[in-house]
Design a protein around this nucleic acid. Structure first.
Lengths: 144, 144
DNA sequence: GTATAGTTGACAAAAATTGTATGGTATGTT
DNA sequence: AACATACCATACAATTTTTGTCAACTATAC
């Protein structure tokens, strides 16, 4: 049970982006440096985030990425789901085969389904804004 | 975010074991056949489950495994944690380095920590007995 | 037109997971 | 005692997934 670094990178990058963009686009190069994430890898992630309508891109020099919405309207769960694709804890759930014989398998499935729901609910209960203000508090605290 | 098949196998096998053991040891061969799990792989899992005090083994012919406790006292979270080892969603948490610079990384950590806690709490809220009685209901329903 | 920076897809490296093989040890049965 | 069963343990191979890299392209500000 492990969250991919994809998801971790994505959330961190989004926090970083929110913190440093004051309406201005932020380049991935900046983010990659500050957060120590491989640039090319970040590009892949932001492609997904863009298609997922979480960020918008500005091309050309001085370009970069912007939040597609205000940070209070972006859920952590969205970010994770977008870069992660299936957020079901068990693979046999995606294919709608519904085979499920009478074995124990069938019974345990409901557990994994519920677990997946809990995970999604939790991550959807946190907004990007929550993390950003938490981060600001942290920075303010460290500066003293 | 995906649960290993290890964990799925382990929980299924434990349900199967509970269903078919009436105080008698159940061999892994049986379980492997019914649940369609590679025998050698199951053996590895049950080694961990034994060391984790979730099952007891009986060697020799007619041997097999028994629950170490009544099924109502065995939590699904225990089973998963035992075969899975670290149940933290993020790897950098195991090593107690506590590095955590002032970047966004630090802020997101608390999210993953809380997520891990939620996952554990949920899985610990379900007992093996819950699953077994659910399975029995399912079987009874299918027989009509 | 040149430099910046996003866009895309293919691919390679690395890690983790899953599964297999082999050789053991304990024990009940004949 | 011999034999069969079934657990015990470790090493290793195959596979899959994840992570990261490369190269070529497009848009745009200056």
């Amino acid at each position: 049970m492990r969250l991919s670094t994809r998801a971790q990178y994505a959330v961190r990058a989004m926090v970083d982006l929110s913190l440093h963009s004051e309406g201005r686009p932020v380049s991935l190069r900046e983010i990659a440096q500050r957060e120590d994430i491989p640039l090319n890898y970040l590009e892949q992630l932001f492609n997904r985030l863009r298609r997922g309508n979480i960020v918008e891109s500005v091309r050309g020099p001085g370009g970069g990425y912007l939040l597609a919405r205000e940070s209070a309207a972006i859920l952590v769960g969205e970010i994770v789901a977008t870069v992660e694709e299936p957020l079901t804890p068990v693979s046999c759930m995606d294919k709608g085969k519904g085979r499920c014989t009478r074995t124990a398998a069938c019974t345990t499935h409901t557990v994994w389904e519920m677990l997946g729901e809990r995970i999604r609910n939790f991550l959807d209960s946190i907004t990007l804004e929550d993390l950003v203000s938490e981060a600001r508090r942290r920075i303010a605290g460290a500066e003293q």
